[in-house]
């Protein structure tokens, strides 16, 4: 119980509060929000971004950044289409192959940035361009439709009435949370992001750890790409534009620090849900797309700002109301436990 309270006070409070506020505000403006059908839609919408955001979180935790997931997802949809439709490879094998490819794409990102010592922003800016270029190259720029009749089931299917993408999302988040919290590699990711030099001196393989984060991010992007092609039963080099930014936004709204070492996937999930809920709410209220982009930007500033200012706000409040000092939560500072 005590632990539960501490848990909520520390890392998750901000993103969770943002989500709840968004839900309340939107339910006030429209009664179409809190319907089963709409909530199912939201969960379908959020799944791809949320899954890619797991990867972004891992990479951000090591103080790197990955700009390539959008392109990697697009390439995934194209390769899957070519493998399954043009080359007649069975669907399960095709999916397996594109997931392996995702790992490979992540490996390339990680290898260039950690072993090639090219800053990850630059390295993945380059691969972002390359992966999408490759997608255009292999499809000659044309989308490929009707990949396989069974593919849509992966996205639109249900288990016990729950949409499958929602289940994938929860399973992957649970796995990522356990990985980060309860495995040596997960701990190494926090250590490398927190203090690279000290991590090296504590016997952690810094390069290998950063590479691992990129590999997992590549895998997450490929899973997101697979869901995208299942949703429309097609592959296209134009899919996934802006996915990387949405994923990074989810992580950052969830409180992950771009300086590395602090953040967690559960908060990222709330971050992704917040973005999806707000977008859905704006859609329901027929707000034009341009305003939606503006709103997303404002949410990022607000969420990160509240996180940064939390200490100050607490201090000022306690000064104004002359509360007992010393209880305020130090903002920004988080432990991985």
């Amino acid at each position: 119980m005590n632990n539960l309270v501490k848990f909520f006070r520390s890392a998750i409070a901000g993103p969770l509060a943002a989500l709840i506020i968004a839900v309340i505000l939107i339910s006030l403006t429209t009664d179409r929000f809190l319907t089963t059908q709409n909530l199912i839609n939201v969960s379908l919408q959020v799944s791809t971004v949320a899954i890619a955001a797991i990867g972004s979180t891992l990479v951000i935790l090591t103080a790197d950044i990955d700009l390539s997931p959008g392109s990697a997802a697009a390439l995934t949809t194209c390769v899957l289409a070519i493998l399954v439709k043009n080359m007649q490879i069975p669907l399960p094998l095709g999916i397996l192959l594109v997931l392996v490819m995702g790992i490979g794409l992540g490996f390339i990102n990680g290898f260039i940035s950690s072993y090639g010592r090219i800053p990850s922003f630059v390295a993945t800016l380059a691969t972002m361009s390359m992966y999408r270029g490759l997608a255009f190259l292999i499809t000659e720029g044309h989308p490929i439709f009707s990949i396989s009749p069974n593919l849509e089931q992966i996205f639109y299917g249900k288990l016990l009435g729950i949409p499958l993408p929602f289940i994938y999302m929860l399973v992957l988040y649970a796995a990522a949370a356990i990985f980060l919290r309860r495995t040596r590699s997960g701990r190494a990711i926090y250590a490398v992001g927190g203090n690279e030099s000290a991590a090296h001196l504590s016997g952690i393989h810094v390069k290998r750890t950063r590479l691992l984060a990129f590999i997992l991010a590549g895998l997450a992007a490929a899973i997101a790409g697979t869901l995208m092609s299942a949703r429309l039963n097609s592959g296209s080099p134009n899919y996934g534009v802006g996915l990387e930014l949405a994923a990074i936004a989810a992580a950052v709204i969830g409180g992950a620090s771009l300086a590395g070492g602090s953040g967690n996937v559960v908060s990222t999930l709330f971050g992704a849900l917040t973005v999806a809920v707000v977008q859905n709410g704006l859609n329901l209220n027929a707000v034009p797309a341009a305003w939606q982009n503006l709103t997303l930007g404002a949410i990022i500033v607000l969420a990160v700002g509240v996180d940064m200012w939390r200490g100050d706000i607490g201090k000022n409040l306690s000064r104004i109301f002359s509360f007992r000092k010393g209880d305020e939560n130090p903002g920004r500072q988080r432990t991985a436990s």
């Binding site: 701990r187 926090y190 927190g194 203090n195 952690i204 070492g261 432990t335 991985a336 436990s337």
Partner: peptide, 15 residues
């Protein structure tokens, strides 16, 4: 070179 400020005391030790 020594400390992880993103970790509490125990996590700093067991690493």
């Amino acid at each position: 070179d020594g400390l992880f400020f993103n970790f509490n005391g125990s996590l700093n030790i067991t690493l």
